[in-house]
């Protein structure tokens, strides 16, 4: 298990997540793509911390910040989905055209 191998796995997760975030029509599935990207980022951070720079405590703090970002993204994202659905009865990106211009 080398740093290169772990980082390539993280890159695969980020690529998959990007595909999901760009291709999915449903808001909830779109957020799953974002989560997958953050999953890859978290793995990359821990890989650097563990195999690259010899485990300084601050590396783990960065990982905790990434996890906080994940939680905030989920909470605010679902609240936005709820608000948009309540206002416009919409649950896919195609049906939202107001902010297009």
């Amino acid at each position: 298990m080398t740093l290169t191998a772990v980082l390539i796995v993280a890159a695969a997760l980020i690529g998959t997540g990007l595909y999901g975030a760009l291709s999915q029509q449903s808001f909830v599935m779109l957020m799953m793509g974002l989560e997958l990207i953050l999953n890859g980022v978290l793995l990359a951070v821990i890989a650097f911390w563990s195999l690259g720079v010899g485990g300084p405590p601050r590396g783990q703090v960065l990982a905790i910040v990434v996890m906080a970002v994940m939680a905030v993204e989920m909470a605010v994202g679902f609240a936005l989905v709820t608000a948009v659905f309540r206002r416009r009865q919409v649950d896919t990106t195609e049906k939202l055209g107001t902010l297009k211009e």
Binding site: G15, G17, L18, Y19, G20, S23, M29
Partner: peptide, 17 residues
């Protein structure tokens, strides 16, 4: 339920590569 499928596959593959 997907849109811009090819673009997304391309973007994901590009990011990975």
């Amino acid at each position: 339920m997907v849109h811009q499928n090819r673009l997304s596959i391309g973007a994901g593959a590009t990011a990975f590569v």
